[in-house]
Design a protein around this nucleic acid. Sequence first.
DNA 1: GTGAAAGCGCTAACAA
DNA 2: TTGTTAGCGCTTTCAC
Lengths: 339, 339
Amino acid sequence: MSRERQHKHGAPVTMRDIAKEAAVSVATVSHVVNNKEGARIGEETRQRVHEAIDHLGYRTNALAKTLSVGSSRFIGLVADAIATTPFAGQIIHGAQDEAWKHGYVLLVANTEGNQAAENDAIAMMLEHQVKGILYSTWYHREIDVPESLHQTDTVLVDCFSTGSGLPAVVPNEQQGGKTATEELITAGHQRIAFINTTTPSPALTGRLAGYRSALEAAEIDFDESLVIPAVPEQEGGYEATAAIIASGATAVFCHNDRVAMGLYDGLREQGLDVPKDMAVVGFDNQEVIAAHLRPPLSTVALPHYELGAAGIRVLLGLEPEQDDEMYLIECPAIRRQSV
Amino acid sequence: MSRERQHKHGAPVTMRDIAKEAAVSVATVSHVVNNKEGARIGEETRQRVHEAIDHLGYRTNALAKTLSVGSSRFIGLVADAIATTPFAGQIIHGAQDEAWKHGYVLLVANTEGNQAAENDAIAMMLEHQVKGILYSTWYHREIDVPESLHQTDTVLVDCFSTGSGLPAVVPNEQQGGKTATEELITAGHQRIAFINTTTPSPALTGRLAGYRSALEAAEIDFDESLVIPAVPEQEGGYEATAAIIASGATAVFCHNDRVAMGLYDGLREQGLDVPKDMAVVGFDNQEVIAAHLRPPLSTVALPHYELGAAGIRVLLGLEPEQDDEMYLIECPAIRRQSV
DNA sequence: GTGAAAGCGCTAACAA
DNA sequence: TTGTTAGCGCTTTCAC
């Protein structure tokens, strides 16, 4: 704590300064700083160096080190919608935790869907000698991979590109849909409606497939009229209310939490109670909504944190190899009080 | 586009390679790459160099450059809740846009409130020779500044620390509260309730002050019984319903959008219509909620993007100096249909 | 107009 | 056990 010079500005303290102060060579300083295995350093020398270090307030220069050892500790993360959803934040969080665990640091770039920003971001990362890049989107979908991504190791997160040869880490939509439906079945429901999205996507097909497989496993006949398409927003859920009631269902699986929120409004307007008159489960586990609806919404979580973390592991080659380069991450059930 | 070697792995192309290929010295290559003013380079030489560059697929090594010129282009951003709110994302977005505009790159670290993670993050940034650090929180409050932040230039974003001497960029709560109230007054309301938070904070006092000053400006007497304390969540808003109705107010300014959402539920349950029977305005402009409630909620936005951008400007010394080192950012009204 | 050489802070053989 | 030396990729005087 007894720093002589704080060097907030002005020449920073370098290894040479330490070497001089401790009357040793920079090589020696380097050795003690990095606790080198091979090099035996006398205990008293080590002492002197350490004293000099915290006397002068030395801090290693990571950039110089990188240049010298040849490989950087940066991993780039380009995201398309950091600002507009809480989801990207969780991907970042997961990626960061995992990266740090392995001694890496994240270089984050937000592109907000802008092509030019994206290219700039990738170029910037390449110039900073990143170890690799995580390319992520805020909702699961197929994408065209920017050409420049092929100049380094990259893994796709929450998106994929068939034929690109790039590994992708995505949520297991089918398992998620199945899980959601099972929550309802387990609660005793037989006539279960499904408000699906209208936008073509892995979520649309995956969750539907999951819904069907859960019914099948429970030996409930699939009834096409029970799947109701809706815009995946509150408005869509609200507007689907009449159809849901007309369907005679006693439970409904909503494509996402926002749809469920809209449905709650519609149901309440008709004097229907959740879950007594109608059980509902959502999807996404969007905190601000799901946890605070009345009653709190049971849902299935999109594992964004895990997507980010797994992305890093795949990039670093720590994840067991898969055949098809598609890493499916499980979507866990989150039980609250709407079922 | 005719890269001969893509060097995805293997020795990267360096300036030396270019120099050799173009039969010039590395100094010359450096000059043309950086478009140096001083150095005159023959047109044909410049040509040759450029050809070699995109023939070999050269990309400058930002780290080596930094080491050489002595000052880095990194700016650190430490955030306490990237994952749990969409707000941090907007701060990052604003900071990034502004940083890029000036040729800087963001090193982001999420600490999720963890003291150790915070220290590690700051140490990491210092080791990477950041130009400075933006220290941000996801809601406006007073903080204790980590000791290590004093080792570099830092600016506080969405938080402050009196006596620390550090510049802080924060939302103008009072103006925001005034704006919100004015929206209601302008719509003709005279008896306006205010559901305030129960947690001591700049938001609590600032918005209340703004509320009072708006009333005063409109010559409406302040009635203490019209300010109702509530937990700043949906639950709080819902529970405040009875008090609101009992107060005889025709309009209510909610401490935040979540409270407004809860209030909507309570009001609907009593058969009251928004805005006909009760006008309501929120605060925060939390997209998922405000824009999708029925009717869509008029609110006042917390200027997170601007906070991030202004933070960078202050750090870079681009913002006109203020006396008290408190930079107040305006909270604009967002008009939708609840008034 | 262009190049040689020194140096940024650090690491890594190899000597001593 | 410790020091010498040669780079890592780039910039920047200062000669030619």
